[in-house]
Amino acid sequence: MSLTQKGRWITVVALVCLAAVYVRALAFTPVERLQGPAQKIFYLHVPAAIWTETAMILVGLAGIFYLFLKDPRLDRFAEASAEVGTVFATIVLTTGPIWGKPIWGTWWTWDARLTSTLLLFFLYVGYLLVRGAVRDPVLRARYAAVLGICGMCLVPFIHMSVFLFRTLHPQPIILKPSAPSLPSSMLVTWLFSLAAFTLLYVGFVTQRYALSLVRDAHGGARPGHV
């Protein structure tokens, strides 16, 4: 089975798992008293946010290893992780406002998670733009690695600065769309969702990686790998 096919299978399984999560979350998980049904957005929003950030960290780590080992597979992986990270960031940035509107009364607030994800989104876009702007594959891999490492190192600062910024600004008066202390049935749903998103990440990255592999084989092969 080629890498592409493996990736497709994993993705299909992941989507089926996600469908199961949908059913469980929508029909078999209790409605949260204070926030109402809209709270269930949490089951999608938070796992997506976790993977948005993890994907960025992986891009950075791949970059570090690439600079020392110069293995083009690492660069391919970084490229894939960045693209998938962008997709997950889009999910966070769309579900966030949809959740925020009924809870906070406004589409956008500069709350910690949304703001951090927005910055991550810009990091991803910049990373992908740089990749698109460099012709030579070796140069591209090196520049991308440098930017990816810087992006990864920025993540803790994003958290720190946004956290400091928030603690001085009035919290949403009504409720915060964060996890209420989770009763076990909600926790289980959330964990299933996290598992589904993990599988989605793996399936997507595998396919995207396979795509780079194919593209490199057809033209402009990265040196060191035919």
């Binding site: 989507l15 809209a38 997709v87 999910i91 769309t94 997507f204």
Partner: peptide, 24 residues
């Protein structure tokens, strides 16, 4: 007592599914 905001929930679930399926 429970707010009637299921519309938002549906919207978010649909949007997420659309994004993921389109990307897949």
């Amino acid at each position: 007592d429970v707010p009637q905001n299921a519309g938002y929930m549906v919207a978010a679930y649909v949007v997420t599914a659309v994004i993921l399926v389109v990307y897949a």
